[in-house]
Design a binder for these strands. Structure first.
Lengths: 159, 159
DNA sequence: GGGGCGCTACTCGGATACTGTATGTCCGAGTCGCAGCGG
DNA sequence: CCGCTGCGACTCGGACATACAGTATCCGAGTAGCGCCCC
């Protein structure tokens, strides 16, 4: 099991975006984080499709939030990039082999799928309690309150 | 993010193994679940390397538990197949770009990595509370108490 | 008849191809700002 | 001097290659049981 690399990029970009009221181009976000611009654009498109950010074309365009960062959970960002489906997918092997379970008895998910689903729910619940604004505050605290200011200043500077 | 298919196979095989005191060959487990024998063998090797099962070569050989199923958690099985490392891996992009964080300030994991690690811990905690014996009991309850008996009987039957 | 030995069949284990997803890149469609021109 | 128009540059968006991990398979090494032969 491996989480797409774009998840990390998207979360960092969301924190950066929360520091700018004006739209920020994908290339500028990529430059800020030192990552491939074209590939980051692909992931930002996913955020756009998920309704987390809104894209604006044209010279002063870019990406901006559709809502305040307090209303955007880390779970939303992760699901936008990685998909909402659970990591574990039951292929119903209980219906195979000499002791196959009858289809009528399979209306209920099998115990193994239930256990994995419960773990998945716990994972998503943990992510849903954290907002982009929380992440920004934590990062700011780690840097003694300079990180967010620097980002804000850099984003407002010359392109 | 996608969990290997072998996780499902391994969990089902563990429940089946818990019903046999004698070693069970990989081919027989594959037949019971209707899955590719050669590929299942690969995953059983992983369980063996993790110390969950013990392999015995020879005509009456096969795989058997090293401990009672009450002492084997679903987390152990999942980690044996999928690896113990977390799904999210921080690539430290905060150290890139024009606002790179100094290496001395990176002794602490960044807030985003901490958030993802917390979610991962919740996921693993949920899995660690469930044992192979629990899974067997749940499956048995779903089938009104016939499933485990059938497996036990089938495994003791002719090969 | 009993013990030793060789053979056979069965098991696991790792090395070897193949497929699908994640990664990375590119170019085209659309849009806004700005400069130039006319009134 | 003001408004309109055309151009240009910049933006996103999806379509196109590549690398790696999961999937699937095979054959060789090792072991235990069984039958046979010898004593």
């Amino acid at each position: 099991m491996k989480l797409s690399n774009g998840v990390e990029w998207a979360l960092h970009c969301c924190v950066s975006l929360s520091q700018s009221s004006a739209p920020v181009p994908a290339a500028r976000l990529a430059q800020l984080h030192g990552i491939p611009p074209a590939y980051l654009a692909k992931h930002l498109q996913a955020l756009s499709r998920a309704g987390i950010v809104r894209s604006t074309p044209g010279p002063v365009g870019g990406y901006a939030f559709t809502r305040p960062p307090e209303q955007i959970s880390a779970l939303e960002v992760v699901q936008a990039i990685d998909g909402a489906q659970a990591a574990f997918r039951c292929t119903e092997i209980r219906r195979n082999g000499p002791l196959a379970v009858s289809p009528e008895a399979c209306v209920k998910k099998c115990a193994i799928a239930r256990a994995m689903a419960a773990a998945d729910t716990a994972w998503r619940a943990a992510l849903s309690t954290i907002t982009v604004a929380d992440l920004g505050r934590s990062i700011d605290a780690d840097s003694s309150g300079t990180a967010l200011h620097d980002v804000r200043h850099w984003l407002s500077g010359p392109g």
